[in-house]
Design a protein around this nucleic acid. Structure first.
Length: 423
RNA sequence: GGAGAGAUGGCUGAGUGGUUGAAGGCGCCCGCCUCGAAAGCGGGUAGGGGUUUACGCCCCUCGCGAGUUCGAAUCUCGCUCUCUCCGCCA
């Protein structure tokens, strides 16, 4: 969430930033509520001070065996007024928070302004899409023919947007997870986390999924738990309500998890294949940094994710998302898009964002520069490294051969027990 | 699921209605002492909010939320979490 103090002291900056995202209009309302809250707060605190002072006096009088009935009666009236004003303040705070929790983050200065993906900017491109001497098939056709993807049975046992991986397909999925984890752990210096897949509501609010995007989340009916839509949620919230030492930053975590998304509003989109599933696997990178380091750490996080595609020899491009295409919590976001031959387009396979203090403020996630310094909010970042299901689809399509078999990328062969082709 | 015990500051640990936001100890920071260090001595060490040019002042917080009271860490009720034993379970 945004800093209420920034809104109070610099409303124009906030108005401008929100306008870039098409989310203006509530700043004046916030300023009014904030002013009203502080006025009432000052009043009620003065009364509470009076109550504290008089109560101590009552204690002294009673100890001295002096009658204090008048003071006690007076305080009963003061208490009524305190109760009333407390309620007023509480209501105002609720309204303020209700608005704050639904306002998106402000874009960084260098984020292109635009309303959708048409204004995204291509930053760089890696690799050349292969030319096929035959008509390349989509991954779902290849997968079914090779009996490594079973969409029918996925639909039978669960429903639409669920897929069963079988045999070497399941093996390849597992190989990808292990390959990505090993790369980020051993070469890039991330610490592996294996978190719960169900989290409480506070975590979902902390990273920004709630309260605004409830309909996109799966919620269990027993207990107050949500299925994680990404490992970003449990991993970013690992240190919520904590004050970290500056020396322990940046914290770099990598986590493999399943991800669960309701995909409300996506009806009819990407209905075939592995691209848009209710459940998919992802290896996620998360960083907690000081504010001054977060921009550099963002760039290096993108490179860490890119290296997965490079080692798999999959052509991709890096897009800088425009203000209107970024996620709710992000201040700046790069997407990695992998080449999918059957679509003839680049498709998102990773999203790498810097959230600055937006999530940290929600999750009360702070650090201290020096032992006796004031706590400050950290900056949080994350990115897919990568979405495993989409990577699997990209490999099947890019590595297909004329006879319908699929070659295994060289770096994965050790993870496949020496197998070099699925046929 | 049943029975019991517990939750206090960075840690440990007192505190059963009245200057207790909290004794003592440990840790940490500053100073004295020392050639230097240790020991010793003195002082300082929570977070949030409001107000103020500032110094400062005020409010809230002893797991969380209600309640009793002029006054609650302390009494009452509800909840959460942790631990022990039993049951069940992968």
């Amino acid at each position: 969430m945004l800093d209420l103090k920034l809104i109070r002291t610099n409303p124009d900056q906030v108005r401008t930033g929100l306008a870039k995202r098409g989310a203006e209009g509530l700043v004046d309302e916030l300023l009014r509520l904030d002013r009203e809250r502080r006025e009432n707060l000052t009043k009620v605190e003065a009364l509470k001070n009076k109550r504290n002072v008089v109560s101590k006096e009552v204690g002294r009088l009673k100890a001295a065996k002096v009658d204090a009935t008048n003071l006690i009666n007076e305080m009963k009236e003061v208490n009524e007024e305190i109760k009333r004003l407390d309620e007023v303040v509480r209501t105002l705070e609720e309204e303020i928070n209700r608005i704050l929790y639904t306002l998106p983050n402000l874009p960084q200065e260098d984020v292109p302004v635009g309303s959708d993906d048409q204004t995204n900017v291509e930053i760089r491109r890696w690799g050349t899409p292969r030319t096929f001497g035959f008509e390349p098939k989509p991954h779902w056709e290849l997968g079914e023919e090779l009996e490594i993807l079973d969409f029918e049975r996925g639909a039978k046992i669960s429903g639409a947007r669920f897929t069963v991986l079988k045999g070497l397909g399941a093996r390849l999925e597992r190989a990808l997870v292990n390959f990505m984890l090993d790369l980020h752990i051993n070469k890039h210096g991330y610490t592996e986390i294996f978190p719960p897949f169900l989290v409480n509501r506070d975590c979902m609010v902390g990273t920004g999924q709630l309260p605004k995007f409830e309909e996109d989340m799966f919620k269990v009916t027993t207990g107050d738990y949500y299925l994680i839509p990404t490992a970003e949620v449990p991993v970013t919230n690992l240190h919520r309500e904590e004050i970290l030492e500056a020396a322990s930053l940046p914290k770099k975590y990598v986590a493999y998890t399943a991800c669960f998304r309701a995909e409300a509003g996506s009806a009819g989109r990407d209905t075939r294949g592995l691209i848009r599933q209710h459940q998919f696997n992802k290896v996620e990178l998360v960083k907690l940094t000081t504010p001054e380091d977060s921009y550099r750490e963002h760039e290096s996080l993108v490179h860490d994710a890119e290296e997965v595609l490079q080692l798999l020899n999959l052509p991709y491009r890096v897009m800088l998302l425009s203000s209107g295409d970024m996620g709710f919590s992000a201040s700046k976001c790069y997407d990695l898009e992998v080449w999918l031959p059957s679509f003839g387009v680049y498709r998102e396979i990773s999203s790498c964002s810097n959230f600055e203090a937006f999530q940290a403020r929600r999750a009360n996630l702070r650090f201290r520069r020096e032992p006796d310094a004031k706590p400050e909010f950290v900056h949080t970042l994350n990115g897919s490294g990568l979405a495993v299901g989409r990577t699997l689809a990209a490999i099947i399509e890019n590595y297909q051969q004329a006879d319908g078999s699929v070659a295994i990328p060289e770096v994965l062969v050790p993870y496949m027990g020496g197998i070099t082709v699925i046929k």
